[in-house]
Design a protein around this nucleic acid. Structure first.
Lengths: 232, 232
DNA sequence: ATAGGGTCTTGATAAAGATCAAGCGAGGAA
DNA sequence: TTCCTCGCTTGATCTTTATCAAGACCCTAT
């Protein structure tokens, strides 16, 4: 682990409230590993032996069925993924692969499970984390069931613009075909959806997005905090 | 509350591990209410003032956006709903309405939040409950993104048949238009999907379902525990 | 510089699903 | 009983989205 890195991890909401001795015990059993791009870290269905923490690079969570595949989320530093499987001691419901070169900490699930039963602070943090995760998926589910693909794209762009400080321009930071899969459409359909949004104050050149008329876009997208506010 | 009912509630996994004095304190502040059918108990966006427990009847969780509405889940006795909003002290992400005459307990969210910070047993139970809820929604999300509407229906029928003991026949226990909304399709499309499944060993007359050829249906539906096993 | 591999876009077409309109049929009220 | 309502089904049509095919673009390695 890099110098200072452990302190950053200790500051993550999930770990901040742990008793120091438990934190130390948990991370003594940790493996830090570096992976090249496009490596499958986790295969859905496998037992959840490790809780993962992304330190560098980014990781894609995806799911498959019957030769189809869909992107569920991307995880960026510093964040954990697949906490619920670890807790339930069940199989992973999603697979994970590195998108770029990535460094990841693997924390043995058995240790996590053991510690949260005795460490109140850790248990509290897990509760908040799981509640947050749950609400995020519910929002995604509403997005998918209530909106068309163009509407999902429009709201996605508004969210990203907001996260980038409402500058009116930002970088997608994700391949278009992955974005398409994340949004629940094909790459071809994404291209055409972008075309459609050209008429509502959106210009996309490569990975550069410019929102030239946020009012117009918002009037089309009709964002609501109950779907689009990540903090809510 | 009816005699004996409080004991049933105490046996729910969510409450079973609570300290008796905390359980008693929590339920001293409870309201038991009876509602007629089609009453909105909760409106999405409202603050989560109460954790709800369904004692009798059934409750539909649904979400709306831009004049569209979709069924997210139905809750049957005895079960709680909208725990995550209570925990996070955030707005409800879903609305709830009674489907039939229903009796519901309302537990003040503030009490729930206060108690889980001190009662380890309760905290553990909440963790398991939230992890379960999270995984359920992830499964629904995979179902929706990876499968066509006919495939979703086919797998739904297999799940219900299994839950009814693999008898090969069971009652839908839900209006078709609600089932359609739950499965992410229109009522018309559900009718046609049923027609399609007639060719795979499924007969539906009113609310009575008969699976005459489970092999054939399963070969079409390709169920997987990673989407279709509610316990996994 | 250029050849090769990927991604992205575009067009044509097909499939899936939604909408609209009409009629059927079971159940409830007068 | 008859009428009415409401949910369900069916057919026709339209919209949305996916698929297939081809070409443009853009890296990158040689």
């Amino acid at each position: 682990m890099r110098p200072g890195e452990i302190d950053e991890i200790r500051k993550l909401p999930l770990f901040a409230a742990m008793l120091p001795e438990n934190f130390d015990a948990l991370f003594r059993g940790a493996y830090v590993q570096s992976f090249p791009p496009q490596i499958e870290l986790i295969r859905e269905g496998d037992p959840a032996d490790f809780l993962h923490v992304v330190l560098e690079g980014s990781v894609e969570l995806f799911a498959t069925w019957n030769n189809r595949e869909t992107t569920m989320a991307t995880v960026a530093p510093i964040a954990t993924f697949i906490l619920a499987a670890t807790i339930k001691n069940g199989p992973y419901l999603m697979s994970a692969r590195t998108l770029e070169k990535a460094r990841v900490i693997l924390l043995p699930s058995a240790d996590v499970r053991k510690i949260f039963t005795t460490d109140t602070g850790f248990a509290q943090a897990i509760i908040l984390d799981l509640a947050q995760c749950y609400r995020s998926v519910v929002k995604s589910h509403k997005d998918l069931k209530l909106r068309t693909s163009v509407e999902r794209l429009a709201n996605y762009l508004l969210r990203k613009d907001q996260q980038a400080g409402e500058q009116g321009h930002f970088d997608l930071k994700i391949e278009k075909r992955r974005l398409a899969s994340y949004l629940g459409m094909t790459a071809e359909n994404l291209s055409r959806s972008i075309r459609t949004l050209n008429g509502y104050g959106v210009e996309i050149d490569g990975s550069q997005v410019r929102i030239t008329d946020r009012k117009d876009l918002a009037a089309f997208a009709k964002p609501t905090p109950l779907i689009d506010d990540p903090k809510c």
